[in-house]
Amino acid sequence: MSNVTHYLPVLKNPLLLRSPWSRLQKRFLGRPTSFPDYFQNPIFRKEDQAKLIENSELSKLAAVPVRPPAVYETSSVYHDPLVNKVINHVMEMGKKKLARELVEKAFENIKRKQIERYHLASSPEEKAKIILDPKTVLHRAIANSKPLLQLSPIKRGGITYQVPGPITEKRSLFLAIKWLLEATNEKDRTIHFPEQFARELLDAASNTGKVVKRKQDLHRQCEANRAYAHYRWQ
């Protein structure tokens, strides 16, 4: 326990705090609930560590305090941060186990369908085109459904125009996953989530289906509203 004390943040002298609200909050923080800011994020994937060794920055980072990796992160080969993000978006009420099972079943469905198609395909070229790995299918589906622009409502002279503008990487990824999940959940409830999700992913990976259509509609809207683009700087 000896090294715990060093990582405790300096407890504020209550008399120096200004607002009553922060005073109330600080009063109740007997134990810290997160690591302080100067802790670095851990790097545990073998490829990332290899890169660090190449740059010979490993020893520098080893001298700085590091946060421990989260409960769902491992250094094993089959851990993927994108898959984890999708699982988080699927999760409701903190039920990670259930979310993970659903996504894994969806992957299983994808795999079965693809293997069927593989066996039905006759020529080797067709076989080479079929992606058998469900993670690759997921990556491709998300890459195909990421929008490149977004419409923001800007009010000028009483009229709200939908102005096209750039989109950050994070938001683009968020929108892609959100649209995929919405498309999965909106259909009839007799088909279970894993199968429906597998269908949506396979469609998106081959550039067909609802999600890709939605993205293309958005792009078309942006193109149509090109004239309003200057409103962003007025």
Binding site: Q25, P42, L58, A62, P65, P68, P69, S75
Partner: peptide, 27 residues
Amino acid sequence: LEKMQVAGLLTRDHRRRERKKPGQPGA
């Protein structure tokens, strides 16, 4: 050992559940 440290495997996780405060529904 250095690699383990950079991976964060050696840091003690001292985070505990934050208590619920009065007047609020949760922490």
